[in-house]
Design a binder for these strands. Structure first.
Lengths: 246, 246
DNA sequence: GCTTTCACTTGATCTCAGTCAAGGTTTCGT
DNA sequence: ACGAAACCTTGACTGAGATCAAGTGAAAGC
């Protein structure tokens, strides 16, 4: 029984198995998957798919970071989602991609051909169920971000973004733990600006300000140390127990 | 066979039946539902549930409009969703509400007790499937709105909102049809401001400007006529074929 | 009928972030 | 090692939208 040998909570073979497919998997599912699964790699800056294009796969991020971006005719762009390892890409039941998907860093994705995946989803209820949970998480994250975009100041926006990346990257709970947190910013100033609805100049200025005031420490341009997570979260204006999800 | 008598595409009895439960319903499902379903009515301005509260139901809007709102400690608020008739409220698998839900107008909701609904969802795959589709639609709408909040000017924001309400209210396709569209604004200037990430004064000024320039016509403060939908959509900066969903 | 309240409008002023511009640093290719 | 190209920083100025303030009009309460 493959079922018994498989550690569902720590499946590193393929994130989608762990997060969407494998939650309570059966041996025959796993076998069925073998035929429809494949890996793709992308270089930083590469476009994975353009908005409006036919999208014949779903998948999830194995390593690296991808972004979902919307662009207006005049070139204004807004990042609408950040895909970190284990995040899911694609919509069962949709023909075309609703936004551009870009590799922000070098990226490995684990993909499934869409038709067979949908068939598998139809025959194995817990996959649809798991996808529903993941989509609800994404929806919460998107709505949390609407508050950031609509009501926060530039400084609060930067603090919010750093806060999210720090928590996600360091895999810590929403409640602030004491002690410094260290990580590398996976985004350029321009990508940060696109995510935050700011210009890159404003991002640069606010990062510098946070650094000067000791809220963050910078080594080079990307290596960040957060001496006091509590303080960063105060700067972000988050509720004390806000459950960010992204 | 109830199945045969039931018109799935035009079920006005209860939107959730139509949109989530009833898509391919069976007689026994319908019977099972009777025991867990109930209606609730709210007055305009009433709070349906506070963020963080226990939420022991899911449901959908029958008539009226509800809003999902997030508030910061200092009182800044951002509306993160607008629930029009047939929209779904609640998250299977979540204990507490992630935002405030408010009745914007007088409201009737059709609710289901959460536990039995989840059980029903577990035993009838197409419900989970239907909910997934609806949640993906909501996610698209939320991300579309992130572009509005992050990158559009005040004037474009107003035009975008009017455009959404007009399309949704008049149930027309994304492609602009010629001929005037008439509807009543279901939101106060303040609610519009909260949705758009603006102040109510700015909303008022921009509405006046659009009126003065003939993009919209106003009778009183709420009754809106859009003589040329194409022109409004241009003001909103939408792509020609943008598929707004909200 | 008169006040009160609520929703909205309009004006004057201020400010935060955008724009334009110049210069610095790091990385990469040759 | 050198030059080019990204990427980032900083400064000066501008402007869209916020803030503060006053006033209008319609509906609700007494």
């Amino acid at each position: 029984m493959l079922k018994a040998q498989f550690d569902h909570t720590n499946c590193s073979d393929c994130p989608i198995r762990h997060r969407a497919v494998c939650a309570h998997c059966d041996a025959d599912e796993l076998e069925e998957l073998e035929g429809i699964k494949y890996y793709r790699t992308f270089e930083a800056g590469q476009t994975i798919i353009w908005s409006g294009d036919q999208m014949n796969f779903v998948g999830s991020v194995v390593s690296g970071i991808a972004s979902l971006t919307q662009t207006m005719e005049d070139g204004r762009t807004q990042m609408v989602g950040l895909l970190l390892p284990s995040d899911f890409v694609g919509r069962p039941g949709r023909e075309t991609a609703p936004y551009d998907v870009l590799a922000t860093t070098d990226l490995v994705m684990c993909c499934f051909r869409k038709k067979p995946f949908e068939a598998l989803m139809g025959s194995t209820p817990h996959i649809a169920h798991r996808l529903l949970q993941m989509t609800l998480d994404e929806l919460d994250a998107a709505r949390e971000w609407m508050l950031v975009l609509g009501r926060k100041t530039a400084r609060e926006k930067i603090a919010s973004l750093l806060s999210i990346i720090a928590r996600r990257d360091a895999s810590i709970a929403p409640k602030a733990k004491p002690g410094p947190i260290v990580f590398d910013l996976p985004l350029t100033r321009e990508a940060m600006a696109d995510y935050l609805g700011l210009t890159l100049e404003t991002v640069s200025r606010q990062v510098s300000a946070l650094k000067k005031e000791g809220v963050i420490e910078l080594e080079g341009k990307r290596h960040v140390t957060i001496p006091d997570m509590r303080r960063l979260m105060d700067e972000a204006g988050d509720d004390s127990d806000g459950g960010f999800l992204i």
